[in-house]
């Protein structure tokens, strides 16, 4: 992180576009990380930044189909992942090992994602300007 991430407006108004990666590693309802992370992603996208999202470890649970929170009186924010496409956030990456350890596969997920090996994930992370973990 050699530069400050808040450098959005240049004097000519064109702005600086940086590669932002959000790494999501928490399950959706036990803590507030997932929901907060999603909001930050949407806000970042509103600044026309190059945004990608990674789901690994328990973060893959955020994308599981069929969530229904009625009986726990919490907002089911899983449909919001389907809105990401409309925000031009199309780069969603899921780590294969994380899925397999949890007995899940791509067909269990509610949005189209790219499943990557840990090695591919490492290359992708290295390529970012800013990496933020949730």
């Amino acid at each position: 992180m050699s530069e400050v991430a808040g450098d959005f407006d240049d004097e000519d108004g064109s702005g600086t576009i940086k590669k932002f990666m959000f790494v999501n590693r928490k399950a959706p309802y036990g803590t507030v990380y997932a929901l907060e992370g999603l909001e930050v992603v949407l806000i970042t996208a509103a600044f026309d930044q190059d945004v990608s999202m990674v789901f690994m470890d328990d973060g893959v649970y955020q994308l599981v189909k069929g969530q229904n929170t009625k009986a726990i009186a919490m907002k089911n924010f899983s449909p919001t992942y389907r809105a990401l496409d409309g925000y031009d956030i199309e780069k969603l990456y899921v780590e294969r090992d994380s899925l397999e350890m949890r007995g899940l596969s791509e067909s269990d997920l509610l949005v189209p994602v790219e499943v990557l090996s840990s090695a591919e994930m490492q290359v992708l992370m290295n390529d970012q300007d800013v990496v933020i973990a949730f």
Partner: peptide, 15 residues
């Protein structure tokens, strides 16, 4: 109802 968020204006306009 579909996405559980109110869209940003740019997204609303496009949609």
């Amino acid at each position: 109802n579909e996405f559980q968020i109110a869209p940003a204006v740019r997204v609303l306009t496009k949609a």
